[in-house]
Amino acid sequence: MKMKHTTLFTISIMVLMLLPLMSASQNTNETTQDTLVYKQNYGLRLGGDIGKLIRSFADKDYKGFEINGDYRFSKHVYLAGELGTEEKTIATDYLDVTASGSYFKVGFDYNAYTNWLDMQNMIYTGFRVGASTFSQTLNEYTVYDTNQAFFNNNYTIRPNEEFKGLSAIWAELIIGIKAEMLTNLFMGVNMQIKGRISQDEPVGFENLYIPGFNRTYDSGAIGIGFGYTLSYLIPIYKKDKKIVVETEKP
């Protein structure tokens, strides 16, 4: 009795396993290759950083403006760059410093996203080299003294000292997306990891904020930035995008 059940089970399993093979062998229609052609706009995409604009209104310690652009010159590769100015005040219990200056960044974006049909969205990584010239103003400082309470003196000094002619150069790695919201109008988000290559520091002080690079860290030459862009593609020429489609013969 037991033996009979086992055999039945084995056979049914085998049939189950063979079923897909049989159905597959039935599907013997021949296919041919066909090519569809879509027109894609190539050109200059120009825009601005809306994140910096919004922050300029919301944050009294910050003023920033950036225009950015890219130019597509092959299927995946874009020449890209940014130009901007920033003013940022860093105020802690012991320091009040304003950095102000302008910067530019230039490099490439590589689009890794395979678009459907005629879409032109991007999921990209990029590389930039950035440079900034700026100044820092030491508005105010309070001398750090753990024994200050003993004589109860006020050690706040307002030197209003400006350190001019500072500069910095850095390299950036970018990850981001750009999506076409309306025809030729793109919105994008990106994140930048920066590595400082060189900087001019004031004598007896340091760069707390570098326009374009953002705040510095004591631990090293690394910086982080975020961008929220809105840009418009100015079509210059159209290029064919061929898509190979497999179709069934009737």
Binding site: I90, T92, Y141, Y144, D145, F205
Partner: peptide, 13 residues
Amino acid sequence: EFIYVSRACGYKS
């Protein structure tokens, strides 16, 4: 004499 220490500590004397 006031000397710069760091971002967090500011200046010392």
